[in-house]
Design a protein around this nucleic acid. Structure first.
Lengths: 354, 354
DNA sequence: CCATTAATAGGGAACGTTTGCATAAAAAAA
DNA sequence: TTTTTTTATGCAAACGTTCCCTATTAATGG
């Protein structure tokens, strides 16, 4: 008898242990139907105040947690948005992600973050993960390698909204959040001109990225405006592999007419360039001035501190998430491919002004 | 008639658009049962080679994607691990996350990343998200505020394995991946002694974090070993709010007998301290030397570059993920609270040696 | 006081899988 | 050929929700 009891108890414990509390349990304990419990828990109307309260009380008492898988299965919604970024080593993307995640959380969405490591193939794999997890929307900044967008267009076709930020896809008609890259580059270069530089080199990015194109054209425009000839020798397209910077900088500085200033596509590039320049023993900014783009955490702390273009990172993340969430739930016909171009700011530091 | 046809076509199109291909569709097209299709797709044995191939072919042809929600609902597994970190602004946690994510992906797990922003409350909220998403395992580095661990113990109780890394919970008997904080601190301080410093201050972390405690005791041991008296005035516990560093450094340097060296709990602290010291016009390392901990990306690039203790970040991430995945699926009785303590390395730079 | 309407609650199908059990077909043994 | 074993398949019940439809009861109005 004792033995029997203890076995029963053991089984009960075993059973309870991994048994998740369901609406069925709540319904049974209150002798009502699970429909009613569901209605209370989803906030549907048409339940008497009394039952409502009873359900709510019992739910908290039993520590009821709704099973999202069951919910998602029937509603075909996941309440999750996906975020795909090329990397999160520099402080740029993490900050954007944090802001976006805040907005998402407030709106009741979970977030799945994936980083493509600047690889096209990984980006595709990430998209599959997002698809498998049935995200309700996707926030994307593409890799430096991405030139084909089929993996992203699938989402559009399936009615899952996409919003691009920073590294956007020009050929897709969806909302995008960018900064005024043209203006930023223009201001950066004009600043270099203002401090008396005339041979300004540009370490540009890969030409599939719109940021590369826009920053390059801003660079060109500033030179033109100030009647400085554009020397193709001073413009180098590179693939953002940081270890190549050394080669390019060495090359530039060994030209018969070396540059007296360098405008880099982004801060990591500028930072690496400065390391190379320092090693060569050249004086910054006198012999060569350097400007970056994005105002990475590090740029204020290094020596010399880096003149750069700051972006409203937090705002980018917030707005991107807001645009996305705004589309989720709305019929595709009401989606609007808004392009938000946020203002930038020139931050002058000692890599250009002693 | 035409009208009827077009309506039908329209409905068909409508229906197809958002209709996800299911095993039922595959089964129907091959006139077999969905059980068989399921068995093929889950790799179960007992299906003839012929049907197997047919199913596989049709599945790829129709671009079948299994509905994870349905699968998870019945299996009670999510194939997802959760990662909770206190922040991801410094390069430290992102790098660990990347490595862990790699391991997880290879083992067929998805990842949900959450950052608690160093807030206890947010950490609890993140745990709830992880619970709601029914993660199969959890990788955690706690916040500077976390002193109660109930929100984490719940996972243990529910049979969901947890592995801590870096910032671990001492009172929970689960696997942990750390570095030899004691040894790191010891070596850092001994290095300072070796270069002739005798009044070595320590900006320590909050005393709920084991890293703080261990680094502090390493600091103490090194001083003791070299017969340098421990001056409590030179040890400051702070809460890792970076803006407070200024106050503490100023305070330390205005002491009647100011320190000639500073060992900071981590790199961000050391970096900020250096900024303050530079502003005061003191010479680094002659007047005051500085050592950090963790070898953040930035520490090599700043001026002066920072002497610090480097951690095998990638390895931490990999091992933590491996330990976790190793426990997933195994019965709780077989879990072993392995503590992996990885070796560190002293990186000498110009903040201690001119 | 009956008819009509409004407010609640329950019943049950559906969502897309997995999986134990039963069974049909085929192959092997008797 | 019959019996046994093996192999391949189908059936149907779960998993925990949501939500449409219907049944009951209460409230309202004439």
């Amino acid at each position: 008898m004792t033995s029997f009891c203890s076995v029963q108890l053991y089984q009960q414990v075993l059973h309870m242990k991994n048994h998740q509390v369901t609406i069925k349990d709540i319904a049974a304990q209150l002798s009502i139907s699970k429909s009613t419990v569901s209605r209370v828990l989803t906030g549907h109307p048409g339940v008497s105040a009394k039952t409502k309260q009873e359900v709510l009380e019992l739910a908290t008492k039993l520590d009821y947690q709704k099973n999202l898988f069951a919910t998602n299965l029937v509603t075909h919604k996941s309440n999750t948005i996906g975020i795909i970024v090329p990397e999160f080593i520099s402080s740029y993307f993490p900050k954007i992600i944090m802001a976006a995640q805040d907005v998402a959380r407030e709106a009741g969405f979970n977030t799945i973050i994936a980083q493509s490591n600047e690889h096209y193939e990984t980006e595709i794999a990430n998209c599959k993960v997002m698809m498998a997890n049935q995200v309700d929307g996707l926030l994307v900044s593409i890799t430096k390698e991405t030139r084909n967008y089929d993996h992203l267009k699938i989402f559009q076709r399936k009615g899952i909204p996409i919003v691009f930020f920073n590294r956007v896809c020009e050929e897709m008609d969806v909302p995008k959040v960018v900064v005024d890259d043209y203006e930023g580059a223009y201001r950066a270069v004009e600043h270099l001109i203002n401090i008396g530089k005339t041979r300004i080199a540009h370490l540009a990015g890969p030409d599939n990225l719109s940021i590369s194109i826009k920053r390059l054209s801003g660079y060109r425009a500033a030179l033109k405006k100030h009647n400085i000839p554009i020397d193709p020798e001073l413009i180098i397209n590179y693939d953002l592999s940081i270890d190549k910077v050394k080669i390019y900088v060495n090359h530039l500085l060994s030209l018969p007419q070396p540059p007296d200033a360098l405008f880099a596509i982004n801060d990591p590039t500028a930072i690496e360039a400065i390391q190379v320049i320092k090693k060569l023993g050249l004086k910054i900014p006198d012999e060569i001035a350097v400007v970056g783009f994005s105002n990475d955490q590090i740029s204020a702390l290094m020596e010399p501190s880096l003149t750069t273009i700051s972006q409203p990172v937090e705002k980018i993340g917030r707005i991107a998430a807001e645009l996305l969430i705004n589309q989720i739930g709305k019929p595709q016909s009401e989606w609007k491919p808004i392009i938000k171009s946020l203002p930038i700011e020139l931050i002058i530091r000692s890599s250009t002004v002693a």
